[in-house]
Nucleic acid binder design. Structure first.
Lengths: 215, 215
DNA sequence: TGATTGGTATTGTTGAACAATGGTAAAGTT
DNA sequence: AACTTTACCATTGTTCAACAATACCAATCA
């Protein structure tokens, strides 16, 4: 089962997604169909298909007859995202099988994050942290949940892009991820889940505070 | 916050979605771009945007260079869907505020289901039951979760379309929905959640058994 | 100053075109 | 007869050009 040929639309969507999450296209930015199509080297029709994709993922906002804009996360967005994360991630850990193959993915993510910390590469630390949480959702063995969660993660990273001081945002959680991993691998799912719940509460507080400081 | 003018693509997507869920387009059916575009009275380009929409929702399957087909639910699909439902609906009830406005929606859904039972209209009973579960998810106050769950529901209804004997599929749950509603409204979230968990387990068993009988 | 009007750029949608791909049936081969 | 090859044909993937409808903006007028 080799991966299908991506198709120009999907490929372009990936490219644009990275531009958005990477911050090269700031939230609120208007995306002109003709100009962006030219820049990306695709036709307007194809770009419109891409727009539908990313709009549904929550990365773009579409205003009829006015155009598409890079979504601007609000505090309501943050609150909603963390609500979803709590609802999904905590039970995922609580009911996890400690020898599930996704545990290996969690371990890889933790190690990536620690290596990136050595290099003071906070953006990569953020990526690795997100990978860790995606691995937690993989514990559920639900394809649909994993796809949904990937979207949530993309939206959250978009929000993080608005904030500065990425160190304060990511560094404190690297070792906590390690603790959660150790607890789960050791068979103590309950405590792993509890730790995650506290983790999410604190992270939400920090992010909301940073948002409030932006006005 | 009034609803945006739907746009031809969204409108067409709705129409096609109903055709799929309503069974007029059977699972596995191939959808020719040119012919369907003519039937629906839209251009091929617009129809392709619709296809992207519904593919992402899980109602269509896209095979590169071969076309799009109405998705054929498998037992794996059913298992995954019920996994998601358990993970979302049970905690939604467990943590619900008994005077949440969505409780009224739950009540409306139960009454609709009972009225449809009077009329022996089992398709409508199914719709009302799904409305009930959507209302439960609304208890979470999470916009993202509600959108996600709507997709899950659509996929499940597609699967139900494959099965006959809609009475056995829906009738037993009408009054249980009523009990869950009463428990929640009475402030006993824990027992409401427990009842829902059993409900989902049994429903999954019934659906899987019906599927197995199809081969 | 504030409202009206008109021009202009952009989106929404269509239709046509062509290359690339996949399926099919006819032709040829063993 | 059964199998492979080939040639054809319908369909998808993608682009381009066109036009109506809409929204933005600036100039005009009360």
């Amino acid at each position: 089962m080799t991966t299908d040929p991506p198709g120009l639309a999907e490929e372009t969507a990936s490219r644009l997604r990275n531009d958005i999450i990477g911050g090269s296209l700031p939230p609120g930015q208007r995306l002109s169909e003709t100009r962006l199509a030219a820049d990306l080297g695709v036709s307007r029709n194809t770009l419109r298909e891409v727009f539908r994709l990313l709009t549904r993922e929550g990365l773009l906002r579409h205003e009829p007859n006015r155009g598409v804009f890079v979504a601007v996360p609000s505090m309501a967005t943050i609150v909603d995202i963390y609500r979803v994360r709590r609802l999904i991630e905590v039970p995922a850990l609580a009911h996890a099988w400690p020898r599930h193959e996704a545990v290996a993915l969690m371990r890889v993510a933790v190690e990536k994050a620690r290596a990136a910390r050595e290099a003071q590469d906070w953006r990569s630390v953020g990526s690795a942290n997100m990978e860790f949480h995606a691995a937690i959702v993989a514990l559920t063995d639900s394809a649909r949940l994993q796809v949904f969660f990937a979207q949530i993660i993309a939206e959250l990273r978009l929000a993080f892009g608005l904030l500065d001081s990425p160190e304060r945002l990511h560094e404190p959680y690297i070792d906590r991820n390690g603790q959660i991993l150790d607890l789960l691998a050791g068979g103590d799912q309950a405590r792993a889940a509890a730790l995650m719940a506290g983790y999410l509460d604190e992270s939400e507080r920090v992010v909301l505070a940073a948002f409030a400081r932006l006005g």
